[in-house]
């Protein structure tokens, strides 16, 4: 780990002031990802600005939505009563991630901006375009079980590893940013980028910008929602494929509305818009679910180790939607 200085910011303005103009400064949340990357010398910040002093409030809004401070811990968010009843998929997604100890430290802001788990990204002896633009991508023809089947590019096939973000993407979350040029907001779905030819640029954040809060719009039918994560061991493993879904059924058993997002499949949390479009107005039955899954994954492409994820994603979508149509959901 390289030497660095450390500052604690009391609020967003102070944090932005501390980091302003310093390209070697990084915001520090719980540190569960950033500090690991510093140990591996993948990240070499010269200054850390601790942003755990930002708001960690989880506040219901008058419209029925929810405002979540960027410094709220993953544990606190998953345990929040409003989240558990109004947005159960979010609670389940967070609890499906990492370990209790890590969730206790991890913040909402840090979770959103955590970096890929591609091992070649972590190993400075490997070629990685994300770490070193133009160096090549050792994962393309290497171990790529955890890599992307959607939206990948020749330059990079990494996935975004967050579980929480998959639920946020399904919920149409908005991210409130703040930075040297003042505050702005954008849809979470627009925050992360596909790799293209610049996999090193992962988000739409401008230099010095930070995440101040995340806002969930009201979504009454999200009470009927869930998250299913398929992984290589029962706990404490990243998703091979995960599905966040909320389902609104009409009286006649057709799909009135649906939210569907996938994890473990792309460089960003993957909102399954094609599947959603294919489902709306269709009967809530396995055939429609399968057709929707096929539509979403029509463009999917597998690599050496991960082609199975295409079928796995389809099956998991069908199973999750099936569960949500059942009486117990």
């Amino acid at each position: 780990m390289n030497p660095f200085s450390y500052e604690r910011a009391a609020d967003a303005a102070a944090a932005i002031g501390l980091a302003k103009g310093n390209t070697a400064a990084r915001y520090l949340g719980g540190g569960t990802n950033l500090v690991d990357l510093m140990r591996e010398t993948v990240e070499r910040p010269e200054m850390l600005v601790d942003v755990t002093g930002l708001s960690h409030k989880i506040e219901p809004r008058s419209d029925g939505g929810l405002l979540i401070g960027a410094a709220a811990t993953n544990t606190a968010l998953a345990a929040d009563a409003h989240v558990r009843t109004q947005y159960p998929l979010l609670s389940r997604a967070i609890l499906a991630g990492a370990s209790a100890q890590i969730r206790n430290m991890a913040t909402v802001g840090g979770n959103i901006l955590q970096r890929t788990r591609c091992r070649y990204f972590y190993d400075t002896a490997a070629a990685c375009n994300k770490r070193e633009p133009g160096a090549g991508c050792d994962a393309r023809d290497g171990f790529n079980r955890y890599h992307a089947i959607l939206g990948a590019s020749p330059a990079c096939v990494a996935t975004h590893p967050s579980d929480m973000c998959v639920a946020l993407a399904a919920l149409d979350a908005t991210v409130h940013l703040d930075g040297p040029d003042g505050p702005r907001s954008m849809a979470l779905a627009d925050l992360h980028r596909l790799p293209g030819d610049r996999p090193d640029i992962e988000t739409e954040l401008k230099p010095g910008e930070l995440i101040a809060a995340v806002e969930l719009p009201p979504l009454p039918f999200a009470r009927r929602s869930t998250y299913r994560k398929v992984r290589d061991r029962a706990s404490y493993a990243f998703a091979l494929v995960s599905v966040a879904a909320a389902l609104d059924l009409a009286e006649d058993g057709t799909v009135r509305d649906v939210r569907l997002a996938l994890g473990g499949v792309a460089h960003k949390p993957w909102r399954a818009s094609a599947a959603e479009a294919a489902l709306k107005g269709r009967p809530a039955d396995p055939e429609s679910f399968r057709a929707a899954a096929e539509a979403e994954l029509a463009a999917a492409a597998g690599l050496r180790d991960n082609t199975f994820k295409i079928e796995l994603a389809k099956r998991t979508i069908v199973a999750v939607l099936g569960d949500l149509t059942g009486d117990e959901a």
Binding site: R119, D123, A125, D138, D141, G142, F143
Partner: peptide, 11 residues
Amino acid sequence: NFDPRTGRIVN
């Protein structure tokens, strides 16, 4: 995961 291209353990 032993990478046959480099002989390096990846995981």
